[in-house]
Design a protein around this nucleic acid. Sequence first.
RNA 1: GGGUUCAUAGCUCAGCCGGUUCAGAGCACCUGCCUUACAAGCAGGGGGUCACAGGUUCGAAUCCUGUUGAACCCA
Length: 897
Amino acid sequence: MHIPTKYSPAEIERRWRQFWQENDSFASTPDERPSYTIVIPPPNVTGVLHMGHMLNNTIQDVFVRRARMRGFNACWVPGTDHASIATEAKVVAMLREKGISKHQLTRDEFLSHAFEWKDKYGGIILEQLKLLGASCDWKRTTFTMDDHYYRAVIRVFVDLYHKGYIYRGLRMINWDCEARTALSNEEVNYSEEGEQVTFYYVKYPIKGSEQHLTIATVRPETIMGDVAVAVNPTDERYAHLIGQKVIVPLIGREIPIIADEYVEKDFGTGCLKVTPAHDPNDYEIGLRHNLPIVDILNDDGTLNALCEIPEFVGLDRFKVRALMKDKLQQAGLLVKTEETTTRIGRSERTNSVVEPRLSLQWFIRMKEISSRALQVVENGDIQLHPPKFINTYRHWMENVKDWCISRQLWWGHRIPAYYYGPGQDDFVVAETLEEALQLARKKSGNPYLQANDLTQDPDVLDTWASSWLWPLQVFGGFNDDCFDHQTGKINLSKNKELSYYYPTEVLVTAPEILFFWVARMIIAGLEYTDTIPFRHVYLTGIVRDNLGRKMSKSLGNSPDPELLMERYGTDAVRVGMLFSSPAGNDLLFDEKLCEQGRNFANKIWNAFRLISSWTPADQPMRDYEAAATHWFSHQLSHSIAQIDDSFEKFRISEALLTLYELIWDKFCSWYLEWIKPPHGQQISVEALHFTESYFFQLMRLLHPFMPFITEEIHRLSNRDTRLIMQTPWPQPKEADAQVLADFQRYAEMVSAVRNFRNTEQIHPKEKITLHIHPSHEHILRHPFLNLLTKLAGLHSILTTPPTTTATKTFLAAGIEFLYPIDEASVDLSQEIEKIQQELDYTRGFLDAVLRKVNNPKFMENAPEKVRELELKKKSDAEAKIETLTRRLNQLTKLNTQ
RNA sequence: GGGUUCAUAGCUCAGCCGGUUCAGAGCACCUGCCUUACAAGCAGGGGGUCACAGGUUCGAAUCCUGUUGAACCCA
């Protein structure tokens, strides 16, 4: 069979992608096998594949493919997330380009534009995942705004409301003035270095006195919202003023001076102006001291009439800040300004400065609903990989805050609250308008209410308030047939799919959404099924460039994944990503890694070519064949066990590296060279059979990592009509440590001879004869001797002394080898120096060992194994010294002759 | 400001519930080789006082304390 020398992946990968798709090779339906389920962290529906997705999804695919081979019914559910804010922002931008403003449109008109956009771009990322070879059950593709999913989200809102977990309230939230929506804490970013701001030192006159307090603030535009001035109760400078009043600059309102421990004495002037409507800490102080709230901002960040300065009304807060400086200066109240840096929160989506704002929003009470979610992680029911994230998780859980779930957007699940009157409590919550009407009639006591009299809340839910149901609703957990309204639980026994596939096995995601999403899925899983949603959480690192910078569009340092796959082959990119990505560690990505992957694919391809080129002869196994196959069967078992162990510990990078070394070094460099028939000879039938068996086992082990090339080789081998993904995962046998150690010893000798040949510049084709001392004769009787003679190019090893006195020597595995040479060319003094160095080192080594062995405390306390080892080191070193000394004496004698 | 994690070859990392040569791997580097599977290759080699300073121990990269430096999370 003709096989090209260079592996070219493009055509082969295209063919297998198509085959897998057309044959639904990854489809799963419940059967008698145990299930192994992964739900994809749904990417943003309008997103495109980036390197983070590549890493994340490659890892998932590795898990799924391996599980499939291990006899599990593996099911990987794909899908996308509607990403409320991000998608709405994109649609708004797209409309703006067309000259349409969102506010010109009705909600329905806007949504039809949005769905149009989603239909056009929504499939891109899933198609890209298919390129990657992701073995998802594509028929199960789910979108968080699919009809059934939409209903599930609404159902959960209603259910939680009736359970008392959801409330509507006035709270301090993060407000995005540009998108005019609330944000969760997690959606607010702080730049790493902080931002340049100005401190304004402002005089606040004390009532009934000529004195004043000086207050430092970075937000002078909020002065008009001040309701108190706070000082630390232990601050002697101000103690006498507590209880008195100061006058708010410019507007003349009298406010009290209060004492609160929150104030830091050393920060600024030690006096804090308290503006409960515009700062979360001030809000807390306000609550403690029963202060009024003066909200001077509109929802777009402009000032309103409450600021009491007519010329400021309608102006943006930053404009007012600039104007305040002049105004305060004119009034003689500005003491000085000072430049400083501080951390400023900006919206993840619009980058506008986030405004702490009091607003009427919907919340989930997290304390109560999440009580079990910490426990299941602490007790190991759910394992985080790497486990260091438990601390982070615990910290968040113990300090969990109520979750603001309303967003002032249109793209998303509309909050099912219906208002029938102007009062704060004049609303009902229901899954449908009809139900709402019934409830409203009852609650209002007005039986004549009509559907028209109800207004649905205009807001939608936070995206995470839909994706936290992901592992449940991809299997229809909240559908009518299995959701029990009475108990507010999912009845697993009435949902065949869910009861089979849930809980899922492992969730692969990024640490940054541990709280956003992971924690909340755990909460939802426990709330609705009393069961955890997954057993393991594998947290990937961030993909950075080789300078350690996070890959981002704005930096332009992120390679295009499709281009990479085209250039190096998908298998190559997959293993390239995994070479250096232990769980939870950032991955410094370099195209070199893909190159390494490509070279690996090529190496495998050529090993396949070699093996395929052999025509067997009907003859018994030769000695070297028997020895080689014997060794490799143990090596293979040993490595499989190691790989399995790495997988159990979720160290897939380690598993890959073990396999990489097994294939490249152990199999190609040692085994194949060992068993390769010499010129003009043929391999025996049995040896070829073993070799093929080993190679195809290696291909199976590699399949999760490199699905395309392994599938291709499997097919070309014509050994098995199944797809390689349907073949069983290789099982290790007991590996004999002695066999491995013996091999190690002979391999060491081979390397030593090669090194010697190198330094002596002996031509590769020249067979040489070496001499050893008769006391080492036993190495000539071991079956692995042929490894040494074959791979080191030896003619023979003799136990007789060389006929010439001129020799060069080298040590390998504790044995001295002598190589006779032309007497004239030997440099005795150089040889003597070399041996002297070796001798010095060995004596030093022996000293160190003797210090231990002669120390009675060591002999008393050290475990027996360690003691034995040290004693062996001692006798080995002594023997070596003896050999070296003998040799040294010989040479010295020769040298003086 | 609070919390967490980390500091081992030029780079990325293993090892770290103390003791399998006072340390391994991959990449990079250097030296030979176009040896009939593979130059996207083969063979060989150099390179680390395990951040610094103390302490515990017969014995510490591995445990404890401090110092310095870095990263992340929360406020």
